[in-house]
């Protein structure tokens, strides 16, 4: 467990940088985490992030597949928005726990 300052607030994060409490998340924090990942957030990013937050906070376990099937974005677009490891990066920026799915 570690502490980090994002957008002027002290936030507790895991060793690999995921917020431990999704309720501490704000859009400003998302912008700063995204910068660490080398991503400049656009409205399209935020649409995906909000979808991920909404579903996850409801208790659904998300996968790249389920996100790719949503109305918000397709799989290819998801990889383009968050290049490299989209589910991990998007989860981190969305202030939720590190994903645990295998598919």
């Amino acid at each position: 467990m570690a502490q980090k300052v994002y957008a002027g607030k002290t936030i507790s994060v895991t060793d690999d940088g995921y917020l431990t409490d999704p309720n501490q998340w704000t859009k400003d924090i998302a912008v700063e985490i995204a910068k660490e990942e080398g991503i400049e957030l656009t409205d399209k990013h935020f649409a995906v992030i909000e979808y991920i937050r909404e579903k996850t906070l409801k208790g659904d376990a998300l996968t790249i597949r389920t996100i790719g099937k949503s109305d918000v974005i397709d799989t290819k677009g998801f990889y383009e928005l968050f290049p490299g490891a989209p589910l991990k990066k998007a989860s981190r920026i969305a202030g939720i726990a590190k994903p645990t799915s295998c598919v």
């Binding site: 597949r65 397709d74 799989t75 290819k76």
Partner: peptide, 10 residues
């Protein structure tokens, strides 16, 4: 669908 997921991700 798996092949599609793989190719969509590069």
């Amino acid at each position: 669908e798996f092949l599609e997921l793989i190719t969509a991700g590069g």
